[in-house]
Design a protein around this nucleic acid. Structure first.
Lengths: 141, 141
DNA sequence: ATTACTGCAAAGGATTTGCATGTGA
DNA sequence: TCACATGCAAATCCTTTGCAGTAAT
């Protein structure tokens, strides 16, 4: 083993994940890649996404049964995702830090808080909600 | 439409999920079902699991990219799952309620707290950890 | 020159679906 | 009875892999 290589494919894929405002799926990455270079295969997308995760250049997270990626390196933050309108709100680390501490004290358990997504109802949907009881999920990587 | 039917398959599957101490996957359910009645198909497992979720008799949750089920109706509780030794600890609703309230006040966002799993390191693994940087996840339904 | 990386196509595993048959209410 | 459920097999969907060819360093 000599080291990792910076190929155009990796360059392009990293760029796409970076530019994606929100979280992006492998398939969405592929669609973007395809426009610029149809020769790049899905296998490369998946392998590169894995690779970039290992390199810690991007983060992976599971929502429901899909994997989403986003560029790494931002200040630690988490998400509040509305299960009704799918809006995404950011929430700073400090707020959740309280929870971490509490659990640490009570259970001597240190929660991984790299990146968490909390599902629920946002302000708007809360008032106009028909109370559709649906999944709340939280994932991270 | 006349109403739903209580078939032996549904009976059996519900029973298996109930008796499973921890969370159980469709495949595990199938294995259990198979022992008692090899004629029951996987399709039925999946369809019944979905059905039981809609009936709110069981809960579904995603861990990583797998779906787990558990019997519903217990007092609301959540889980602390060690990513090292896979031990599962229960955590009561009250602890997380604090977080809900905080987020409610700060963001006017009501988090779904039906059932949440927090990943991290348990007491034991914390001390003896080689700090394997790995996924933290939280899921619910 | 190495040997990591890629593309292709095929394999994989989990879950879903169409359709004819079976069965609970 | 007869609409809902089931079994079977094929189909999908997302993701991974083997292998031979390609290219970064």
């Amino acid at each position: 083993m000599q080291g990792y290589r910076l190929t155009p494919q990796r360059h392009l894929i990293l760029d796409i994940v970076r530019k994606a405002g929100a979280h992006i799926t492998p398939e969405q990455v592929y669609a973007s890649v395809y426009k610029q270079n149809p020769a790049i295969s899905r296998a490369t997308i998946y392998r590169t996404l894995d690779f970039l995760c290992e390199m810690r250049l991007i983060h992976a997270m599971q929502w429901g049964d899909r994997t989403y990626y986003e560029i790494a390196g931002d200040a630690p933050h988490h998400h509040l995702i509305c299960r009704q309108c799918n809006s995404v709100e950011q929430i700073d680390h400090a707020t959740l830090a309280l929870l971490i501490e509490t659990i640490d004290k009570q259970h001597h358990f240190s929660v991984d808080m790299d990146h968490i997504a909390l599902f629920g109802l946002c302000r708007k949907c809360r008032s106009s909600s028909g109370a559709t009881k649906q999944p709340a999920a939280l994932q991270s990587n």
